[in-house]
Amino acid sequence: MPNNKIGGHYSQAYDEELQQAVDRLVDMGGLVLQQLRDSMAAFTTADVVLAKQVKKGDRQVNSFEVDIDEHCLDILARRQPAATDLRLVLSVLKSINDVERIGDQAKRIAKTLLKDEQGSRPSAEQLAELNGMSAKVQLMLQHALLAFQQIDADKALNVLREDKAIDDDYSRIMQQSLSAMMHDSQQISVSLQISNVAKALERVGDHSRNICQHAIFLSKGRNVAHLNDDELQQIVEKKRD
């Protein structure tokens, strides 16, 4: 979807190059989101074939990152962007790193199954807990990519707040896993699997949060890394002079 906040230059080709950078980021995000869905489906159903496909698909994610990186570097070299254009290119470069890391977490989930495919399996209740957390994570990633695509600081701020529910799920699942290991040594293998998947999902939430921060930086021109939600809200709500 073309972004009407990108453009207005003397060169239509330049406008298209900037738009392509954002579009390719969103496409890469879509690929990674599918990787995440497939990895969770593989883990939930013990589908070794699908898990291997996810692991293999990580190469495509890496290729995507290299392609976008080269596209952005080409813009920097030839166009020498300034102000908003420079922020856009830098934000895309930062965001593709987070998207690639999300792809790594999807691979991590797939490898969790592959490392112990003949071992004990989590219960239906435990899998339901993980899938509930995964659904929130996937939605957060979708919303983060949309906020970036639309350069919408308000949407990005709303998405940032979704991370609290994910952190709460992570804490609960980890506590349950630790308790299970302490009370039954036979649960150690299963608990380690659950902990590994939950940690991967928690990291996806963190990287989605980073993408939102990049969107706010792009929209507001302020570096918002390491700020809390209240500080972010003040920046988002502040109008330009």
Rank of each mutant, 00 (worst) to 15 (best):
A41D: 14
S171M: 13
L113E: 09
Q193L: 06
L86V: 01
D47C: 12
Q187W: 06
D116Y: 15
E237W: 05
L31T: 14
L218R: 02
R108Y: 09
V61G: 09
L88T: 01
E162D: 14
D47P: 11
L114H: 13
N3A: 05
D67M: 07
V48C: 00
H143G: 10
T112I: 12
G103I: 06
E100T: 04
Q12R: 13
G29V: 05
I109H: 01
V197R: 05
L139I: 13
H214V: 03
R101N: 00
K111D: 13
H214Y: 05
I173W: 09
M28Y: 00
G119R: 02
Q142H: 09
R24A: 12
A200Y: 07
Q53I: 10
L36I: 04
K238L: 05
L145W: 01
L218A: 03
L114A: 13
L160T: 11
V224I: 05
F217E: 00
F217I: 00
H226I: 06
D116C: 14
I166E: 10
A124V: 15
M1R: 07
A51P: 07
K107C: 08
L232S: 00
Q233T: 06
K56M: 15
D67C: 00
I68L: 02
D98K: 02
M181F: 06
D163H: 14
R78V: 07
Q193I: 06
D184A: 02
L139F: 14
